[in-house]
Structure formats: C-alpha cells, structure tokens
C-alpha cells in the first residue's frame, strides 16, 4: 500500500445534525436538530485507506455523506488541497469535485441499460464514452453494458455504483458498506482494486460492518461512536492507545488444560471447549513456557494475534460487543457453539 504523503483534505471541528420536523400549533414549520456528527477531526492523506468503524447509528453514513458534499456541514473548518475553506456551501461543492461516492445500497432498476444509467451520470460531469467503457471494464461490467438494470444481481449493482464513483477520477473515494452483496471472489477483486487505486494516490475511506473484511485492507482506522470520531490511527498505535494487548491463542485437542496448571503458568483465563477441541486466549504470557505446555497437552496451533477491530471498538466505546451489535462470528464461534450445545442438552 502506498505510504501517505500529501494531505488532500483536513476537516476540523465539523458539525452536522439532521433537522427533524416537529410541528406545533404555534409553529407548523418548527424543526429541531436531531442526531448527526460533531467535532469531527479527520485528516486524509493521498493514497491512504481509512476504515471507518463504529456501531449502528454511530454516524458513519452521515459523515460519509458530509465528506462527499451531500450533507452540508453546519459548521466546519477545512483545508482542501492546501486551501482553507470554512463556508459549508462552498466546501460541499469543492468536496463533490474531488470525491467519488458509492452509497450503501443503490437499487439500480428499470429497463434502461447499464450503459444508459452510467452515461446519465457521465453527462453530468462531461465524461467521454471511452472513459465510461474503461470504468465499466475496470469494475467487470464491460461485457454487460447493454443489459438492463432489472437483470442485475446485488453484486452487479454494487459494481455499477462503484463505476459511478470512479467516473470523475476522484482524489478521494468514499465507500459506504462496499462489500455488501459481493461474493468472496468479487470481494477479493474489490480489495485488489482498492489497493491499486491507493498506489495511484487515490485516498479511500471505507465504512463497513463486516469488520473482518477491513483487516489487511486499511492503513488507518477511525473509530466512531455517538457522532464523534473517538480515535484515528494505525491499527497497532490504536491498540496501544486504547490499552488493548496482543493475545496468545492456543488451540489443542484432547484434554483441556486445567485451572491449576494454568494459574501456575500465570494464566487467569479458562479454555473454551468446542466440538473439535479447545481454545485458550490470554494476554498474560510473561510466565508461559509453550514447550512445557506442549509436554502436557496436545497443541496443534499457537500464535500471537493482534487485537481485532471489534476489541478496539469495545475498548474505545466501553460498550459490550452485544450492544455494539457487530459481527462476532469469527471471534465468538466457539462461544456460540457452546451456547447451542447447552441449548440442545
């Protein structure tokens, strides 16, 4: 991945709130500020990929809409390509000029062809037909441009949305849940495309609930909660900042290590037992001798793992994973199987 260099956009002290209609007899047009984003501080460097992570309702989509000029900030201080701008109207227009936006879910529909649909967007920005075809080829729709929108699968619709985002050759690509509806192969191709764009100097901001899809793709993480960015940094630095330690994961089969043995080795945690064996996770590794461990128990895997995004988010927000409502399938699969086992019994 390209190393960050020039700061393309720096947003500081940005606030935006939706206005909800709350009519009264005295004032039928009364509107009150509702949820939104506040005190946002985010620098975006050329070629870096930022993952925007947060629980549902954290304000991720609102922030992304503001970054692409759809929502106009209520107040903001911004530096865009070296020029200061604090007028929300002017900033919104400038942001639209340098960003490409792929919304969360676009239901492209109707009898018009893929080419006609993207051509309509292309006409807004004066894009030549040759470039349209190039972009369609890039997202894998080049051979299907004459097909009608109604015939597209969800994954194909996502690709079309991405093509629209790329049309204006944006300096910053803003992607809201881009992996929704993509099969694993398309997802891998998508990540590869992001990597290529990043190497060309295009900055990417991705919001995703599928946290595991972001791992290995993003350079930096921005953790959002209740409309604020709690922290933004590289993965390792965030872990350090939030005090989340790397953990040792030991997997084995046969008899699981007992409490006495574990406490002797300075481990407080207990192993979880699944159908295929047991798993032990611990951050207390100072007294642990893995060779000694292996003499007593059958171990087939051990590794130091960096904190997951979910752990970082839990540490940053102070919420339980259940409250956050994230996808914990990968981390908690053993726990889940245990629950199912108990239910069956």
């Amino acid at each position: 991945m390209a190393k960050a260099s020039e700061c393309i956009l720096r947003i500081s002290d940005a606030n935006f709130s939706y206005k909800l209609a709350k009519p009264t007899l005295k004032n039928p047009f009364r509107k009150l500020p509702a949820a939104g984003i506040r005190e946002i501080e985010i620098p975006i460097f050329s070629g870096e990929i930022i993952g925007l992570v947060g629980p549902n309702g954290a304000g991720k989509s609102t922030l992304l809409k503001s970054l692409v000029g759809i929502n106009k900030f209520d107040s903001v201080t911004a530096t865009i390509e070296g020029l200061d701008e604090s007028n929300p109207d002017k900033l919104a227009q400038k942001l639209r000029e340098i960003t490409g936006h792929m919304p969360e879910q676009v239901r492209w529909q109707g009898s018009k062809s893929i080419h006609a649909a993207i051509n309509e967007i292309g006409m807004m920005i004066g894009v030549a037909d040759k470039k349209l075809k190039g972009v369609l080829d890039l997202v894998g729709l080049g051979t299907r441009e004459s097909e009608s929108l109604d015939s597209l699968s969800q994954g194909m619709r996502q690709r079309l949305s991405l093509a629209c985002a790329l049309l204006s050759s944006p300096k910053i690509l803003v992607l809201d849940e881009p992996f929704n509806g993509l099969d694993p192969v398309a997802s891998a191709a998508f990540k590869s495309l992001l990597s290529k764009l990043s190497k060309k100097g295009v900055s990417v901001i991705i919001s995703s609930h599928q946290l595991e899809t972001l791992e290995g793709v993003v350079d930096k993480l921005a953790l959002m909660h209740k409309g604020k960015i709690l922290a933004i940094s590289e993965h390792a630095q965030l872990a350090k900042l939030l005090g989340v330690k790397r953990k040792l994961v030991i997997r084995g089969e046969g008899e699981a290590p007992n409490k006495k043995f574990l406490s002797k080795n300075g481990i407080d945690e207990e192993p979880t037992i699944g159908k295929t064996g047991w798993k032990l996770e611990t951050t207390n590794t100072s007294k642990l001798d893995i060779k000694k461990f292996a003499e007593f128990y059958r171990i087939y895997h051990w590794a130091m793992e960096k904190p997951t995004l979910t752990q970082l988010l839990v540490a940053a927000t102070g919420l339980d994973p259940e409250e956050i409502g994230l996808q914990l399938v990968r981390e908690g699969s053993d726990d889940l199987s245990k629950i199912f086992q108990e239910e069956e019994e």
């Binding site: 759809i70 936006h101 807004m124 204006s168």
Partner: peptide
Amino acid sequence: RASGVLEVKLSQPCPRRIQ
C-alpha cells in the same frame, strides 16, 4: 430517492441547480 440513485447523482460535481 427511494432507489438510492439520487444519492449518486447528488454527490456528482454537477451543481444541484443544473440538475
């Protein structure tokens, strides 16, 4: 608006008034 296409259109550099 219902299909989400409006979001794609409004994020384009083309001024909203022109649209």
